[in-house]
Design a binder for these strands. Structure first.
Length: 519
RNA sequence: GGCAGCGUAGCUCAGCUGGUGAGAGCGCCGGAUUCAUAACCCGGAGGUCGGCGGUUCAAAUCCGCCCGCUGCUACCA
């Protein structure tokens, strides 16, 4: 067998100065789905997630709480790591930017960039708001009548000059534009790509990449008064986890450049502009694709503490179960666009798609095998045109799913699968095997076998989204563990007649509202 | 302000380079059925395709203008 092609996929690393919110969970779930899909499709997948632990905000949050940054991390990072088991994540590694391996890696990439002549020391100057602890462009400030200059938050700003290292980003403008041009799929979705291209085409200034005003970060090699700008630090995590700076490490050699960085749309620039430039400067290849997903809104409103609609992602899993939650977000939200969720929407998907359509199909067909055939999969007779057509629809799912997933259109992959679920329900209703029980038992057996075979393929294909539920479904069909990857889809591994099946159990229960609490 | 995009049935959205009767899912109404998780199946409900004007034999689909909305417009991430 030829070696599996590599596939390296990452989430952005989360900033753990608070607890995980739904956006973190969403990104992790979507990335996990893609990772699982590629694994089942025969790739040697490396899936990375983790936490971005440096920067001034971490320091400030810790100080407000009367903690050291390390204390704050000790409190918060486990909450992020807990997303793994809670959401069924299959990440191969979990990186923290405070780890020794990462400090070594970040300092190494800095040294490589410096050796390449792309880093120089100068003075960073700008309008600084002490109260906001942020610099603003002059265009963002206004000069009031009494000669006071104010920032966008209405706070006074002053001209500040600070020694800083700069990265020659401007030198990479043309190379970036050429790269976007030669690799139209580098930035996805396309709307994001256009924004980035116009941004870069508008000209790039050199980038200040060190800070001296606080010390919670990775020291600049040879000049420890400076710490690295958080994005030099943070982006480097993607190569640290492959063994950088050891570019001869097995993982690095096999899995860099990354195939896909899944990130939120708000940090596209850092990944699509700065990151390739940093990598090229260090003599490394740029990633193949950066995909910016959208934001989630609770009942159409942005989540905020003041509105009081903050939803704890762990709570959703407790309420609905991990697989329904994963299914809901991946099916309901067009990946790449913003989305909205609510209790009603989740329940609607859960009951209509999972319980009524797929769960009920499995239950009604398999219980007939149990009750009428002693739980033994029947031998199909001659296939009717309807039987053949049904099987052909099932056999055709993989191609559609793959095409969708090539473009990270997770929702379209699921739509393609559920179209077959609907076809299977129509097929089953039209064939009415319950009416054939006495009139034509052989034909009944054929219909039940075809339906079970269709469910087999659906279950295999749905594993990336609902690994637990899909496994239960495959258990009900007595499909061996080693026969559950995508190579088993299509006609090559039809369900074997004569196989004894376990008594079917419900895999997707309906969500029933709890009794209204007495007032 | 500039650049890009969007505005299609109650809701969420498909409708590519113009031409069979403007669609899907959900919701809703009616029917059928009882193998099944009161599920599945069948049928229906009729929306000026944001507004106005133009090009064309023909426009939701092209052009112009107007209204409304969104994103980007560098060092907060």
């Amino acid at each position: 067998m030829s070696p599996k092609p590599p596939f390296y996929i990452t989430t952005a690393i989360a900033y753990p100065n608070g607890v995980p919110h739904m956006g973190h969970a969403y990104e992790a779930i979507a990335t996990d789905c893609i990772a699982r899909f590629k694994r089942l499709d025969g790739f040697d997948v490396r899936f990375l997630t983790g936490t971005d632990e440096h920067g001034i905000k971490m320091l400030q949050t810790a100080q407000k709480a009367g903690l050291t940054p390390a204390d704050l991390l000790a409190r918060n990072v486990p909450r992020f790591a807990a997303m793994g088991p809670a959401f069924g994540l299959s990440n191969d590694d979990f990186i923290r930017t405070t780890e020794a391996r990462h400090r070594r890696s970040a300092q190494a990439i800095w040294e490589r960039m410096a050796a390449n002549g792309d880093i120089y020391k100068s003075v960073y100057s700008g309008w600084y708001s002490v109260r906001d602890e942020a610099y603003y462009a002059e265009s963002e400030t206004v000069l009031t009548g009494d000669g006071v200059r104010l920032g966008p938050q209405g706070t006074p700003v002053e001209w500040v000059e600070e020694e800083s290292y700069f990265f020659r980003l401007g030198a990479y403008q043309q190379r970036l534009l050429d790269y976007y041009d030669a690799n139209p799929g580098f930035i996805m979705p396309e709307a994001r790509r256009n924004e980035v291209v116009s941004f870069v085409a508008g000209g790039l200034q050199d980038l200040s990449i060190s800070r001296t005003t606080f010390d919670w970060g990775i020291p600049v090699p040879g000049d420890p008064k400076h710490i690295m700008y958080v994005w030099v630090d943070a982006l480097t995590n993607y190569i640290t986890a492959l063994g950088y700076p050891d570019t001869q490490a097995e993982l690095f050699r096999s899995h860099w450049p990354a195939d896909l960085h899944v990130i939120g749309k708000d940090i596209i620039r850092f990944h699509a502009v700065y990151w390739p430039a940093f990598l090229w400067s260090a003599g490394l290849d740029a990633p193949r694709r950066v995909f910016g997903h959208g934001f989630l809104f609770n009942r159409g409103e942005k989540m905020s503490k003041s509105v009081g609609n903050v939803v704890d992602p762990f709570g959703l899993v407790e309420t609905y179960g991990v697989d329904p939650v994963r299914y809901f977000f991946l099916r309901e939200v067009a990946f790449g666009q913003d989305g909205s969720y609510s209790h009603d929407a989740i329940v609607a998907r859960m009951n209509a798609d999972l319980a009524n359509d797929l769960g009920n199909l499995a239950q009604r067909s398999l219980s007939m095998v149990g009750k009428n055939l002693d739980g033994v999969l029947p031998v199909p007779g001659t296939l009717s045109p309807e039987d053949e057509a049904m099987l052909a629809l099932a056999d055709g799912m993989l191609e559609k799913a793959r095409a969708a997933m090539e473009a990270q259109a997770i929702h379209l992959y699921l739509a393609a699968v559920w179209a077959v679920v609907a076809d299977a329900n129509r097929y089953f209703a039209a064939a009415a095997p319950w009416a054939l029980r006495k009139s034509d038992p052989e034909k009944m057996g054929t219909v039940l076998w075809v339906t079970a075979e269709v469910i087999r393929q659906i279950a295999i294909l749905v594993q990336p989204v609902m690994p637990g539920s899909a496994a239960k479904l495959l258990d009900l069909l007595a499909v061996p563990g080693e026969a559950r990857d995508f190579a088993q889809l299509g006609p090559v591994a039809r369900l074997a007649p004569g196989t004894r099946l376990p008594t079917p159990i419900g895999v997707f229960p309906r969500y029933v509202e709890p009794e209204a609490a007495p007032q």
